[in-house]
Amino acid sequence: MFARAAIRSFTRQSTRTALFYTTETAPATPQLLLRIKADVKVAMRAKDKERLAVVKGILSDLTYLEKSPQAPAQVTDSVIQQLIQKSIKKRQEAALSFAGAGRQDMADQENKEAEMLKVYLPQAMTSQEIEAEVRRVVKEQGATNAKDMGKVMKELGSLDPARAPKKDVSDMVKKVLAEL
């Protein structure tokens, strides 16, 4: 009986020691995720139910994304920002539907929630900044017509999709290439 207790004790201690001295590091938590979790606490303390519902919704979407088969290898700030952009887009589309159905109160609510989410996104690039970047890449690649769009878009893939949405970049590439 004493031997079993000693083995259990040794096993617990060695497990603790192994965890403490392990060389494996956990992936860093994205700063945006930490900010969102802190905002949940702030909203709870302030009893701000609307903000709390919106922020918890983002955390729920993130949890769903992490458990889905299409989950990225590592959740980064950029992944979270893309998730927030999708959520904003859904709310804007819902607001348009509500406004079309004569439910302005619901449309206003959806727009308000979209504005709450925009706080978590970085400053978006203006269309002039996107155009300047597109023109620079077109010049570097020597693109002359619409057939070269793939080369240009591949090079522009390094742009942060949270700052410059892919659709806006694609539209600008089409416009610039059409002008050539």
Score class of each variant (00 low, 15 high):
M1F: 01
M1L: 07
F2Q: 01
A3Y: 03
R4L: 08
A5V: 09
R8A: 14
S9W: 02
F10K: 05
R12P: 14
R12F: 09
Q13M: 14
S14A: 12
S14F: 03
R16A: 15
R16F: 10
R16K: 08
A18L: 05
L19N: 10
F20G: 12
Y21T: 08
T22D: 05
T29M: 14
T29N: 13
P30R: 00
P30T: 00
Q31N: 10
Q31V: 10
L32G: 12
L32N: 06
L33E: 12
L33Q: 15
I36K: 01
D39A: 13
D39T: 08
V40Y: 01
V40T: 03
K41P: 11
A43D: 01
A46I: 05
K47Q: 09
K49V: 08
E50N: 11
E50S: 13
E50F: 02
L52R: 02
L52E: 03
A53T: 04
A53E: 06
A53N: 04
V55M: 02
G57L: 03
G57T: 04
I58F: 04
T63A: 10
L65S: 01
L65Q: 00
L65P: 06
E66F: 02
A71T: 12
A71C: 13
A71M: 15
P72Y: 02
P72F: 01
Q74S: 08
V75E: 00
T76F: 04
T76G: 08
T76A: 09
D77Y: 02
D77G: 11
S78F: 02
S78N: 05
L83G: 08
L83S: 07
K86G: 11
S87N: 08
I88Y: 00
K89C: 13
A95M: 13
L96P: 15
L96S: 15
G100R: 04
G100E: 01
G100S: 12
A101M: 14
A101R: 00
G102I: 05
R103F: 03
Q104G: 12
Q104E: 05
D105T: 08
A107P: 15
A107Y: 03
Q109N: 11
E110N: 08
E113I: 02
A114M: 03
A114P: 12
E115M: 09
L117K: 01
Q123L: 09
M125G: 13
M125Q: 15
M125E: 13
Q128T: 10
E131S: 14
A132G: 13
A132Y: 07
A132L: 12
V134M: 02
V137G: 13
V138E: 00
K139R: 15
E140N: 09
Q141W: 07
A143M: 07
A143N: 09
T144A: 13
N145E: 10
N145R: 07
A146K: 01
K147G: 14
M149I: 06
K151L: 15
K151T: 15
V152A: 12
M153R: 10
M153K: 07
K154C: 10
E155H: 12
L156N: 11
G157W: 02
L159T: 09
L159E: 04
R163V: 08
A164D: 03
K166V: 14
K167V: 11
K167T: 08
K167Y: 04
D168P: 14
D168S: 09
V169K: 02
S170D: 06
S170M: 06
D171N: 11
D171Y: 06
V173P: 11
V173K: 13
K175I: 12
L177V: 07
L177W: 01
A178C: 10
A178E: 09
L180T: 05
